[in-house]
Lab assay of single mutants.
Amino acid sequence: MQNSHSGVNQLGGVFVNGRPLPDSTRQKIVELAHSGARPCDISRILQVSNGCVSKILGRYYETGSIRPRAIGGSKPRVATPEVVSKIAQYKRECPSIFAWEIRDRLLSEGVCTNDNIPSVSSINRVLRNLASEKQQMGADGMYDKLRMLNGQTGSWGTRPGWYPGTSVPGQPTQDGCQQQEGGGENTNSISSNGEDSDEAQMRLQLKRKLQRNRTSFTQEQIEALEKEFERTHYPDVFARERLAAKIDLPEARIQVWFSNRRAKWRREEKLRNQRRQASNTPSHIPISSSFSTSVYQPIPQPTTPVSSFTSGSMLGRTDTALTNTYSALPPMPSFTMANNLPMQPPVPSQTSSYSCMLPTSPSVNGRSYDTYTPPHMQTHMNSQPMGTSGTTSTGLISPGVSVPVQVPGSEPDMSQYWPRLQ
């Protein structure tokens, strides 16, 4: 039975679970980093996980050691009161100082060594604690504590007292930064006198190289990059290397530039699409467009005044059976039934097929058609009795279509119309 579990990581490298990497692998990681390889490249070359490479390099940059820390136990506290007071002093002298600059000053002034120097995250935590204590304490208590930490007896009751030896409130920041720059020169002199001055200088240079600022491109470089971006948004590694040799930039910087440029292009394309949609959409909808001609068919113009009344309900007709019959029939052209047409008796099958359309009241044959006459024609229609054979009435077949029909004066039988409509 094995005491430890061995495995293979996602890159194909072998590791022992819970145990640190061998010293030979750690040394190779540092050597590759000094030669300029990126952590992701080191991870692929040595088949070590990216997190492990970053952790080893980060500890090497901070402490200069590649040895693993002790497994188990607690780390001794490195942010001692003396170190905290120095950090507060540096922050007062130059409020814009960075944590890694404070760390360098602690090393250069001999406050800490490589073994007990606090990390950048520890210094940031100390600065946050100082800021929170400043908010919790009152103004007087804060000034007393700062005077105690600074070891001075001057008056701290006013704002300019934060910067000793100065009279203009805006000047101390520059003086403090100048003092810090002077301390940086002392850093070089002190570290050069040490035993491991060369190694420390190499480590600091490598650290500065990794902690780079934003790349500033010249106009020629920007023009070359934009020209390549117009050709393709995704250049391959050969195109990037050719462009890197042409404009004297690292291939990694060119790759990052193209990634950022593609993101910018997507944002601009989104804005262009929004403007295009806004320009195509009308600002207001016309009133006429809300009524579609496919839904509402136009009603033909009436030929006679009587045809303006298109349904039985508008003429005072309360018989719903006839109203439904007229509205359900398709529109037909106007025609006239003459008196000489043969009077065919209704076929029983045809009569039964339209039995649902006729009223059940037996008085329908005896009703006159003056009910369908509009009010303004009552006088004219009353002067001509319906009993004469020459009287013409208008029957409504569908809305908007008038059918003048000659009705025999002897017997106005409704059943004569249905064979004609089939």
Rank of each mutant, 00 (worst) to 15 (best):
S65Q: 12
K75F: 03
Q89H: 10
P81V: 08
K55W: 02
M137G: 11
G110M: 07
K134H: 00
I71A: 15
S43P: 02
S6P: 10
R38E: 04
L130T: 13
L32T: 02
G12K: 03
R59T: 05
N9Q: 00
G64H: 06
S54K: 03
P81F: 06
K134T: 10
S54D: 02
R67N: 07
I71T: 14
C112T: 08
R44K: 09
A37T: 11
D23H: 09
Q136I: 12
G18T: 01
R19N: 03
S132H: 09
C40H: 04
K86V: 08
Q10T: 06
N124V: 02
E82R: 12
D144L: 09
P95G: 07
L106R: 03
G36A: 06
D140H: 10
L46M: 06
N17C: 14
Q27K: 12
S122E: 00
P22K: 07
T25E: 06
I117K: 15
N114H: 12
Q2I: 13
H34K: 12
G110A: 09
S132G: 10
N116A: 11
R44W: 05
E62C: 06
S6H: 15
D115I: 13
P81S: 07
V14M: 10
M142Q: 13
S6F: 15
A131P: 06
V16S: 12
A131V: 10
Q136G: 11
M148L: 11
S96Q: 09
P118L: 08
L146F: 11
N9R: 03
F98E: 04
S108Q: 11
D23G: 08
L130A: 15
S85H: 10
S24Q: 12
I71N: 14
I97T: 09
S4T: 13
S35D: 12
R19T: 04
T113Y: 10
Q10I: 04
F98M: 05
A70D: 07
D23C: 10
L11Y: 13
T25F: 04
C40F: 03
I117R: 15
E82A: 12
S74P: 04
I66W: 15
N9G: 01
R92F: 14
E62N: 06
S43C: 06
P95C: 10
P20D: 00
K28L: 08
R103E: 04
I45H: 12
E101F: 06
S35G: 12
V120S: 03
D104M: 10
K134G: 14
G7A: 14
R67F: 07
Q27D: 05
R128N: 00
G138E: 12
D140S: 11
V126K: 05
L107G: 15
Q136A: 10
K134M: 12
D104E: 14
Y90T: 12
S35I: 12
L107I: 08
G18P: 03
P22F: 00
C94M: 12
N124D: 04
K86E: 08
L127T: 06
R67H: 03
P68E: 00
D144P: 11
C94T: 13
L57G: 04
T25V: 09
A139I: 15
S4A: 13
S85T: 11
P81N: 07
V16H: 14
L46R: 03
N116G: 08
D115G: 14
I42P: 03
Q135W: 09
N116D: 06
K145C: 11
N9A: 04
G7Q: 15
C40N: 04
L32R: 02
R67E: 10
V78G: 00
N114G: 13
S4P: 14
S54F: 04
T80L: 07
P68I: 00
V83T: 08
M148T: 15
Y143R: 12
V78H: 02
P76D: 02
E109M: 14
C52P: 01
L11G: 02
A88G: 14
E31S: 09
S85R: 12
I117G: 09
A37Y: 15
L146D: 14
Y61I: 13
K28I: 05
S108R: 11
N3M: 12
S122M: 02
G13E: 02
P39C: 13
A33F: 04
D104K: 09
R103P: 03
Q136S: 13
C94I: 08
N9W: 01
R59I: 05
A37P: 01
S122Q: 00
S49V: 03
D104T: 09
I42Y: 03
M137Y: 13
Q2W: 10
I45N: 08
G18N: 00
G110L: 11
L107Y: 14
S65Y: 05
G7Y: 09
S35R: 13
I97V: 15
K75L: 05
N50P: 14
K28S: 08
K134F: 10
F15N: 01
I42E: 02
P22L: 05
I45R: 14
G141T: 12
I71D: 01
W100Y: 09
M137K: 13
T80D: 01
S132L: 10
L11R: 06
V84D: 03
A99P: 04
S119A: 04
V83S: 04
S96I: 00
L149A: 15
R38A: 06
N116C: 09
S54I: 04
L130N: 11
V83L: 03
E93A: 08
N116V: 09
R19A: 04
V111K: 07
I45P: 03
S132A: 13
A139G: 13
T113P: 12
Q27T: 08
Y143N: 12
L146Q: 14
S108E: 12
P81C: 06
L107S: 14
S108H: 13
L32W: 03
V8R: 12
V126Q: 06
R19G: 01
V126C: 09
S65K: 06
A37G: 05
P76C: 09
Q27H: 11
M148E: 12
E109N: 13
R125C: 00
A70I: 08
I66S: 06
R59Q: 05
S6I: 15
D41S: 07
K86M: 10
S74H: 04
A70F: 07
R147T: 13
V84F: 04
T63L: 03
R59W: 05
R105I: 08
P20V: 02
A33G: 06
K86N: 11
L46G: 03
E133M: 11
Q136M: 11
D41H: 08
R103C: 06
V30K: 07
R67T: 08
S49F: 04
S96K: 13
K28R: 11
S49M: 01
N50T: 08
E109I: 08
S96A: 14
G12D: 02
P118C: 04
R38M: 02
C40Y: 05
R147W: 12
S85Q: 14
L149M: 14
K91M: 00
S6G: 09
S96L: 09
L46I: 08
V83C: 08
V30G: 03
T63D: 02
K91H: 06
A33N: 06
S132F: 10
R69N: 11
A88L: 10
N3Q: 12
S85L: 09
R59D: 05
N3R: 14
V8T: 08
E62K: 14
E93H: 07
R38V: 02
S24H: 14
H5W: 08
S85K: 13
G7E: 08
R92G: 10
R105V: 07
E93C: 09
K134D: 08
L46F: 04
D144C: 09
R44N: 03
R147S: 13
R105A: 09
L46Q: 04
V111L: 08
G12R: 02
V8D: 03
L106N: 00
S96W: 11
P95S: 10
R44C: 05
Q135H: 10
Y60T: 06
T25P: 02
Q135D: 10
N114F: 11
L127E: 01
N50M: 11
